[in-house]
Amino acid sequence: MLTYTTYSEAGGVGKTTLASNLADAHAQHGRDVLAIDLDPQNGSLTYLLGVDTPREDGDADNIARHLIDRPKGDFHELVEETAYGFDLVPSHNMLENLGDLLGRAESMAEDLGEEFDRWDRLREVLLDAGIPDEYDTIVVDPPATAGPHLYNAIAATRSLVIPLEPTGKGMQSIEGLRDVVQGFEDTVGVTVGVLAVVPNGVGRTADQQRYLERIRELGYDAPVAIGERASLFEGCWDAQRTAFSYVDEVRDRKRDHEMETLEQLHTLARHLEEVSA
């Protein structure tokens, strides 16, 4: 089974864009895919995919309620079919207060003599619902900041796919990645693997090419390096579509460099599938 969290220390490097397009590519490869949106921001995976859900309705059942063991229905009722052949558990505004909610739920469980691990709730919820028996691929997209959303995602998937801007700042995050991963392992109590680093916005400057070499010297897989595609990916957000759908249904003509990018996304998805085999 393939499970991973898209993670980046910095915002704006294409984390959610990558999650949506990898989920689409996996589905095109015939896999049963579930994407889980743990990001409470409005510009989240749910928004990008154009999935309309009652995220502002505090009475509606949602992923946060299940994480604190206060569901209003079966977990499967949260799952939405997307237009891209994969399923989505959408975000909800209640996720904004997930840290406080988990803390209260943990305190109540302790008072009752019950087990409750605030960092392991997503994994437990998925197992209780039988999700691993229904899907062979799970992609979780949490916010970039460290906290309960990210820790639950990592504890559930135990693997990371990391988009990176090949800049000095981006390289600093890669140089310190082993310490970051060790910190995750210490917090959630599991071994965490890095399945791939995905350079994004790569140009042909000598500095950027040197950064790519350094990523591989550090021992990380970087199966593809995606060029500067601001027009394509910004168009995806404007149209609320994956890149595959945007190129196929919105673009008036096929552009060679964009078709190359779609093939790179397929290559990356296949690499991840092979790693998990």
Rank of each mutant, 00 (worst) to 15 (best):
Y4V: 13
T5C: 08
Y7K: 12
T17E: 08
T17W: 01
A35P: 07
L38D: 02
D39W: 02
Q41D: 11
S44E: 01
S44V: 03
N62H: 13
A64T: 09
R65C: 09
H76A: 12
E77I: 02
A83G: 11
D87W: 00
L88P: 00
N97D: 15
G99M: 08
D100F: 13
R104W: 12
E114L: 08
F116R: 07
W119D: 12
L122M: 08
V125Q: 08
L127N: 12
E134L: 12
Y135W: 06
Y135D: 05
I138M: 12
A146C: 13
H149M: 09
M171N: 02
G176Q: 03
Q182R: 15
D186H: 13
G193Q: 15
V194P: 06
G203Q: 07
G203C: 04
D207Y: 15
E213T: 13
E213V: 09
G227K: 10
R229T: 11
A230M: 14
D238I: 10
D238R: 13
A239H: 10
Q240G: 04
R241W: 00
A243R: 01
Y246P: 10
D252A: 13
D256I: 13
D256Y: 10
E258I: 10
M259K: 14
E260D: 12
Q264L: 15
L268W: 01
A277N: 11
